[in-house]
Design a protein around this nucleic acid. Structure first.
Lengths: 125, 125
DNA sequence: GCAATACCTAACAAAATTGTTAGTAAAGAG
DNA sequence: CTCTTTACTAACAATTTTGTTAGGTATTGC
């Protein structure tokens, strides 16, 4: 699905090489991703619980985002024993757990400037 | 250019409503954006300086990303007086300045897990 | 006049992301 | 045997993002 030799891909790789910041932003960039990570950290760690939190998401899209988060090492699928039908739990890895406070900082930053007018820093007034 | 009534747009708005986190991630998500913010914070605050830092970017793309960052209140275009041809400086707003440490945290988080194997947290072992 | 520099923009094309449709398995309930 | 639940997946279509081409303005230096 991805063209490895497109300018877009080449530029992406270039940025990944410049600084880890760019890979990190890439990991959290998908439409539902950061919200999914946050929801799992709050205990909504089953496919159905996530679907309830995100009422507009389709099964296919949720499954795809979860798989990508797994690929990036943010979470792991775990079988829940003795459940019928076989239940799956999504568990944040240490990497995923460490991401949560950063997401909270981003959220705080967003809130701080919600609906405010644009201001230059003091030093430039 | 944007379809306001597409499912994609509606879902985006829904997420913006759930938590500021999603708007915040949206602001830093574009291909070159977080790197541009970081570069400006390091003093590369002219169109040409940014082009040197990001050799693969085209004028059009750089201009577009700068304009979007301006729209989101991250930076401001400032005329540099008495320059020929008329110079423009990109100055981070207070919002932009406050974003930089969050980007640094994201970068640190990325570096911490670079190339490491996936690990569950201690409590799950 | 012609080139170079600095800073863009519109219109378009290519590529990537996101969403939809239609399915799968396995097991318990009725 | 059919319905329901949980947890998906493939193939495709719609939408959005990203990049390209081809320009523009204004000034200095030759």
């Amino acid at each position: 699905m991805r063209k490895e030799q497109s300018t877009n891909s080449i530029n992406e790789k270039f940025l990944f090489g410049v600084c880890e910041l760019n890979s990190a932003v890439n990991i959290i960039s998908g439409r539902w991703k950061s919200q999914i990570v946050y929801s799992i950290s709050e205990g909504n760690n089953r496919f159905n619980l996530l679907k309830k939190e995100l009422p507009n998401i389709s099964d296919q899209v949720l499954g795809r985002q979860l798989k990508e988060l797994e690929t990036h090492g943010i979470l792991i699928r775990q079988n829940i024993p003795d459940t019928v039908p076989a239940g799956i739990m999504y568990v944040l890895t240490q990497k995923g757990i460490d991401l949560v406070p950063v997401l909270k900082d981003l959220c705080e930053w967003g809130k701080r400037y919600e609906g405010k007018e644009i201001k230059l820093p003091e030093s430039n007034l």
